[in-house]
C-alpha cells in the first residue's frame, strides 16, 4: 500500500502478532492512579509491557516477603501492634523507592507519550491494518466495549484476549491464577454460595487475597478503555483509506433533483 511506504518517525499504532500497542490521549493522573493501586499497572496501560511486568513481579515478591498486605489488613482494622509484628523489615525499605518510582515514571511517560501522540496525529502517520505471517494473524477490528467488559468480569485477562492483546492477557491470566490459588478465593466463594460465611472468611488467605481487587478492576478498566481506543484506530485507518482512494480531484457532484 502506498500510505505504508511513507516513513514516519513514530507510528500511531503497531500491529504486532501478539499485541497492539498504540498511542492515544491518556489522563496522566489516572495512569499515575493505577500505579498507586499496583506498581506496574500504569505502564501496562501505556503499553510499556516489560517495564510493567518487571514492576508487577517485584511488587508481588516484595509484598509477599514483607507481608505488607497483612499489615494493611491489621491497620485498617485498627490493630496497629499486630501490623507491626507481622511486617518483615528485612527488605521492607526497598519497597518504597520502587513504588514511588512507578508512580512518578508512569505520570512522566504519559505526558511524554501524549505529546508524541499529538506529533504523530499532525504528521498523519500511517496506520497498519493487517499483520500476518506463519505465526498468526492480527488485524484492526471493531469490537464491542460492553462485551469486552463482560468477559473481563468473569476472569481477568479475557477482555485483553478478546482484543487480541495476548501478551498482557497471558500475563494477567498467570497472575490471576496465582493469586486465586494461593488466596483460596474460589473455595471462599463456594462457601458463600452454600451460605457459610464464617467458613468462607476462615478459608481466605488475606495476604494473597488483597492483591485481587486491584487486579480485577484493573483488567476490567483496561479491557473497556482499550476496546474503545482500538475501535477509534479502526475508524482512523478507514478514514485515511477513503481519503487516499476515493477522492479523485476531477469528481463532479451533480446538482440534480431528488428522485427517491
Amino acid at each position: 500500500m502506498k500510505q505504508l511506504k511513507k516513513s514516519k518517525r513514530l507510528p500511531r499504532n503497531y500491529l504486532g502478532l501478539i499485541d497492539t500497542p498504540m498511542l492515544h490521549f491518556r489522563n496522566p493522573y489516572i495512569v499515575a492512579g493505577w500505579s498507586v493501586t499496583f506498581p506496574g499497572f500504569g505502564h501496562l496501560i501505556l503499553g510499556k509491557y516489560f517495564r510493567g511486568f518487571a514492576l508487577i513481579i517485584w511488587e508481588g515478591f516484595i509484598n509477599q516477603y514483607s507481608k505488607v498486605n497483612m499489615a494493611m489488613v491489621y491497620s485498617f482494622n485498627g490493630d496497629i501492634s499486630a501490623a507491626k509484628d507481622i511486617l518483615n523489615i528485612r527488605l521492607l525499605l526497598l519497597y518504597m523507592p520502587v513504588y514511588f518510582f512507578a508512580i512518578w515514571d508512569s505520570y512522566r511517560t504519559t505526558v511524554d507519550l501524549n505529546n508524541e501522540f499529538k506529533l504523530s496525529e499532525r504528521d498523519k502517520s500511517p496506520l497498519r491494518k493487517y499483520t500476518m505471517n506463519s505465526f498468526g494473524i492480527n488485524y484492526l477490528d471493531k469490537r464491542s466495549p460492553n462485551i469486552a467488559t463482560l468477559w473481563a468480569l468473569f476472569i481477568p485477562s479475557l477482555g485483553q484476549t478478546y482484543q487480541h492483546r495476548t501478551l498482557s492477557g497471558l500475563f494477567t491470566l498467570i497472575w490471576a491464577i496465582v493469586y486465586t490459588y494461593n488466596s483460596h478465593l474460589i473455595e471462599a466463594i463456594v462457601y458463600l454460595i452454600l451460605g457459610d460465611i464464617n467458613q468462607s472468611t476462615q478459608v481466605l488467605d488475606m495476604q494473597w487475597a488483597l492483591f485481587i481487587p486491584s487486579f480485577y478492576f484493573f483488567t476490567i478498566f483496561d479491557a473497556y478503555v482499550n476496546t474503545v481506543e482500538l475501535n477509534k484506530i479502526f475508524d482512523k485507518e478507514q478514514k485515511d483509506y477513503l481519503i487516499n482512494n476515493f477522492q479523485p480531484s476531477n469528481y463532479k457532484i451533480k446538482k440534480g433533483r431528488l428522485v427517491k
Partner: peptide
Amino acid sequence: FGFLLAVVFSTILACRGLVWEWGPI
C-alpha cells in the same frame, strides 16, 4: 475515576470485612 475508587474501597472494605459479619468477599 470510578474504577480507581473501586480498587481503594474494595481493598479497605475487604480488610474490614474480616471483622464484620458479611465477610471479606
